[in-house]
Nucleic acid binder design. Structure first.
Lengths: 223, 223
DNA sequence: ATTTCTCTGGACAAGACTGTCCAGGATTGG
DNA sequence: CCAATCCTGGACAGTCTTGTCCAGAGAAAT
């Protein structure tokens, strides 16, 4: 499935539309541009006018597809949930011969843009800080994800208490990583370290990453 | 020094103002309310009208203190830098008999609201995602902080490479922690684990936290 | 070909926000 | 007591945004 597809303007897509004077768009087009704007400018940037301009379409036709801006935001939220939380849960349940490889699976899931859109996740997280309904949904998502990671550790023999602690450290570390790593200057400067901890090439995890995961998975917790 | 002081309305502060018809405020009052709004509603919520209403003052008098809204935001940014980055750097340079205690110092700094305002930090971080100038300033702050943590590890005998990796893991983990932990429901559910990793009471670090820090500091990294 | 249904564009109203101008109250210094 | 200065409130203009209404263009169905 092609994810994060660029917003399609039908006038630029002769296969779909004969490029007549009348420009036509789909609800998905509105949603795609809205998602891009949410990511790049935050929820405040998701304006009907801005989307319509990027779509090359009149602002008022928006209201044929969505009842109001509020309904668009609701659709955006549903879209996020389907995109980001499901893959994480699935990856945590992936069979792994030991905890090291399980942690590697987790790392890979968070690094692969096809499995997890970190920019989108943080855009929603930011949005949730100022909207109670969004907040409860992202809280639910965090709870689900943490539970999955905890189950992953528990499945490999860790006691409940330690599995929870490790899950939190792991998940928080990834969130912190994404919270900062979005910026370019630091990305360039630390590409080496990325490879150290999170670098995967092809389908097989990098040996160094495996070693890092093992170091994390096998270190002793205090009694 | 009293930090994060509640915004003072002079009309509610008879010691300072005789509660006459004319209400007077200071530039600091505008700034304090602006900071609160930045934290609670994001930079989009920092509106002149909203601040004036909370101050019980006419909107137009704002322009006597600040040239424009833009100048207020600039002041807000300066204020953040002075509040949050300095204490972290200072705490990383604190003398510690070994790396475990150094890590404890770091933990404590990020947990103590008097030393580091996590909400403010994340509000600025969020703001930076949509404003280039803010972004460069927070990038600089992150670089400084990471350098300080790296130096902390290096000072206790870690090789440059490993010191950098550990600094990043530690700092990212804290950022991830704060990125999620702001929410109440999860806070309550995980108070136990908080104590496990980050719990400090009084001036002496909790023994469990020391043990956690030791576990982190002493775990082996892969070659 | 004609009718019907989809969808778009332009005009309009209403509200929120920023920034300016200026009269004048309150306070301070002489 | 008077004058200069500090600070505030109200009015006004301009911009940006959401949402409504309706005429009518195109496409599809009959």
């Amino acid at each position: 499935m092609a994810r994060r597809a660029a917003p399609v303007l039908h006038r630029d897509n002769p296969d779909k539309e004969p490029l007549s004077g009348h420009v036509k768009v789909t609800p998905e087009d509105w949603l795609n541009v809205a998602r891009d704007l949410l990511i790049s400018e935050g929820v405040a940037g998701v304006k009907v006018l801005a989307i319509s301009e990027r779509l090359g379409v009149s602002r008022s036709s928006f209201y044929w597809y969505f009842k109001s801006r509020k309904h668009l935001l609701q659709a955006l939220l549903d879209d996020w949930e389907a995109r980001n939380t499901e893959p994480v849960l699935a990856h945590c349940r992936l069979p792994a011969e030991n905890i090291t490889w399980a942690v590697c699976n987790f790392f890979r899931c968070f690094v692969d843009p096809d499995l997890f859109d970190a920019s989108l996740d943080f855009a929603v997280r930011e949005w949730s800080r100022h909207d109670g309904s969004v907040r409860s949904r992202i809280d639910a998502a965090d709870t689900q994800r943490l539970a999955a990671v905890t189950a992953m550790f528990a499945h490999h023999g860790y006691e409940t208490y330690e599995a929870e602690a490790r899950a939190r450290i792991l998940y928080f570390m990834q969130c912190g990583y994404h919270a900062l790593e979005v910026r370019e200057p630091m990305q360039a400067r630390t590409a080496r370290l990325e490879g150290y901890l999170l670098g995967f090439t092809g389908t097989e995890p990098d040996p160094v990453a495996v070693a890092a995961a093992r170091s994390f998975a096998e270190s002793r917790m205090p009694a």
